[in-house]
Simulated scan of single mutants.
Amino acid sequence: MLHLFAFAALAATAPCPHPKVHDGDTIRCGAERVRLANIDAPELAGSERCSRASRRRLAGSRNPAWCDSALAERSRATLAALVARGSTRLAPIGRDRYGRLLARVMIDGRDAGAYLIARRLARPWR
């Protein structure tokens, strides 16, 4: 049964021929903003989520702000290098509250989110 589910997930993917990396957990496929599903990458310098007020507001949330700009740059660079090396496909899941497409992002069959988590450049979204 698991193999059937994995096959169905692969069959439901869509190509993203020229992805542009915004940060460690967001890319663009043409005009579509795509949020990598189920991960959280650190915020880039200047992110509103890292303002004092936002950090205070988010401190007790399921997804507090992760403000480490040096790690954020490494996360973005690693994702950019990964998408540059292979074919990018999306397995859409839905939309987030900002209207971005939530999707598993696959590079030559490899889950980009899991790749970043394994390198400690992202963490599972809580």
Rank of each mutant, 00 (worst) to 15 (best):
M1P: 15
L2A: 14
L2W: 10
L4D: 12
F5D: 15
F5M: 15
A6R: 15
F7V: 05
A8P: 13
A9W: 15
A9I: 14
L10V: 04
A11Q: 11
T13Y: 06
A14M: 09
P15S: 10
P15M: 07
C16N: 09
C16I: 05
P17A: 12
P17Q: 03
H18D: 09
K20D: 11
H22R: 12
D23S: 06
G24T: 05
D25Y: 04
D25M: 05
T26N: 10
T26D: 11
T26Q: 04
I27V: 13
R28V: 01
C29R: 14
G30V: 01
A31V: 06
E32L: 07
E32V: 12
R33K: 13
R33T: 06
R33H: 15
V34A: 02
V34H: 09
R35H: 05
R35I: 09
A37V: 09
N38R: 13
N38T: 07
N38P: 04
I39R: 11
I39W: 05
D40Q: 12
D40K: 12
D40G: 10
A41V: 14
A41F: 03
A41P: 10
E43I: 13
L44W: 12
L44E: 11
A45Y: 07
A45T: 14
E48Q: 15
E48L: 14
R49F: 04
R49P: 07
C50H: 15
S51T: 14
S51R: 05
S51L: 06
R52Q: 12
A53V: 12
S54F: 06
R55C: 04
R55D: 01
R55S: 01
R56P: 05
A59N: 09
G60S: 02
R62V: 01
P64N: 06
P64L: 07
W66E: 00
W66Q: 00
C67V: 08
D68Q: 13
S69Q: 06
S69G: 11
A70N: 07
A70T: 15
L71Y: 08
A72F: 06
A72V: 03
E73M: 01
R74C: 00
S75W: 09
S75Y: 01
S75K: 08
A77W: 08
A77N: 14
A80I: 00
A80Q: 10
A81T: 11
L82I: 02
V83S: 14
V83A: 11
A84E: 00
A84W: 00
G86F: 00
S87H: 09
S87M: 10
S87L: 06
R89T: 13
A91I: 11
A91M: 09
A91W: 07
A91H: 15
A91G: 12
I93D: 10
I93K: 15
G94N: 05
R95H: 13
R95N: 08
R97Y: 12
Y98H: 08
Y98F: 12
G99V: 13
G99H: 05
L101H: 07
L102F: 10
L102R: 12
L102S: 01
L102A: 10
A103T: 00
R104L: 12
V105I: 04
V105C: 11
M106C: 03
M106E: 03
M106T: 04
M106V: 05
M106K: 00
I107Y: 00
D108E: 02
G109D: 02
R110A: 06
R110E: 04
G113W: 01
Y115Q: 02
I117S: 02
I117L: 11
A118T: 14
R119F: 07
R120P: 03
L121I: 04
A122D: 01
A122N: 02
R123H: 13
P124E: 03
W125E: 09
